[in-house]
Computed example of a mutant assay.
Amino acid sequence: MTTQPTRPTIVSGMRPTGRLHLGHLHGALANWVRLQDEAECFFFSADWHALTTNYHAPEIIKQSEREMFVDFIAAGIDPQKATLFVQSHVKEHAELFLLLGMITPVGWLERSPTYKEIRENITDRDLALYGFLGYPVLMTADIILYKATRVPVGVDQVPHLELSREIVRKFNFHYGEVFPEPQPMLTAAPKILGTDGRKMSKSYGNTIDLGESVESTQKKIMGMVTDPARKRRQDPGNPDVCGIFYLHKVTSEADTITWVDQNCRTAGIGCVDCKKKLLEKLLPEQERMRVRRDALLARPKDLDDIVQLGTEKARAAAARTMDQVRKAMKLE
């Protein structure tokens, strides 16, 4: 008799530092919705991770967390299929973080691409902090605490996961084969540009939030930066540098995408025409998301119950893992 393979375990989280936007939807959430049907999924609020850069404003974390879970569910995450929980409510994350820190060389952390990039780009606060330097160790604890076998990442995040794999290898070398090495699940995260032509990011203030009102979404889209080289209506455009075209590619039907591509390059349509065509599909989707969000926000106890049940499930899984870790390390 053939044994059915065990479903893979997938762990991923987001930092609650503000409203989620279209970049989150198409870069991560849409993929999570697909994965929940084929794997054991743990999706969490990374509130401790939020403190690594937002330690000066902790008051935004709890409110952002509630909004974030609402966005998860409104986007299609099913609490019956995936486990939703809060990182700081599962104290085993902190315990494993501490223990992994005992074997992680500082040099491994200092060479992290994100460590260097964020320190260069965030200059309005001190980030020469132990917590910020050590966040990849906490990230590793988050992943392996649930014996994750696959982690959805973009190509730019592969070096971060490789650091986690190195930590796992070192732990298993010293204490025995406790953890599987999490494998990257490469995702073709689409490029989503913000209203100013840069990557859509809360830090840049250039986002279109999930479920934002029709009026606000329309205003932002109509004022959005397009091809800067296209000065006049009769000038041919280059959709490859236009944020509106990137949104078409994740929102519109294939024939519309082809129509926009061809007519932009030949000046068959202007930027206003292109934006109006996008709004035909985007506005109804934003309105559907707004209705789902409002319905969830109107039932705060139901949402609390969902997260509480998920957190209890996560605690149980984490406790089983930490029993193994303590025995392997001769701590009990």
Rank of each mutant, 00 (worst) to 15 (best):
L210Q: 06
P16E: 13
A317G: 12
E332R: 10
C41V: 05
R293V: 13
E92R: 01
M102E: 08
V168Y: 00
A28P: 15
I60L: 05
H93C: 02
E38V: 09
A46L: 12
K62C: 12
G197F: 03
E166S: 01
K147I: 00
N172E: 11
Q183R: 07
I192D: 01
R233H: 09
L161H: 12
Q324G: 02
A82R: 10
Q286A: 12
L309D: 12
Q87K: 10
N121W: 11
G13N: 05
D196K: 09
W259A: 00
G18P: 01
F44Q: 00
L133W: 03
F43I: 12
K275W: 02
V178Y: 01
Q183W: 04
T256K: 12
Y135D: 00
Q4I: 13
K116E: 03
M289V: 14
V158R: 14
A94I: 01
W32H: 12
Y55M: 12
V272S: 09
K62D: 14
V90A: 13
E215G: 06
I244K: 02
G270Y: 03
L109T: 03
H248C: 07
C271I: 04
P5F: 08
N121E: 13
R232L: 14
D126G: 06
D126F: 08
M14N: 09
R326G: 05
I257C: 06
D305F: 14
G107N: 15
I103H: 02
M14S: 04
L138A: 03
F42D: 01
H56G: 11
Q157A: 06
A141R: 02
G76E: 04
G23I: 14
Y246G: 15
I103K: 00
T104R: 06
P300S: 06
D47G: 03
T83K: 15
V90R: 01
L296A: 01
P136W: 01
M224W: 08
V70P: 08
E67F: 03
L163A: 07
R198M: 14
T140C: 04
D294A: 15
K231G: 10
P105K: 02
I60C: 10
V11E: 02
R15N: 02
N238F: 00
G154V: 03
M200P: 03
T114L: 08
A57M: 05
D255P: 12
G154F: 07
A75D: 06
K220A: 11
Y55Q: 14
D273F: 05
D261P: 02
E215F: 09
M222K: 15
T187H: 12
N238R: 07
P8C: 08
T140N: 03
D71L: 03
L20Q: 05
A229Y: 10
E332A: 07
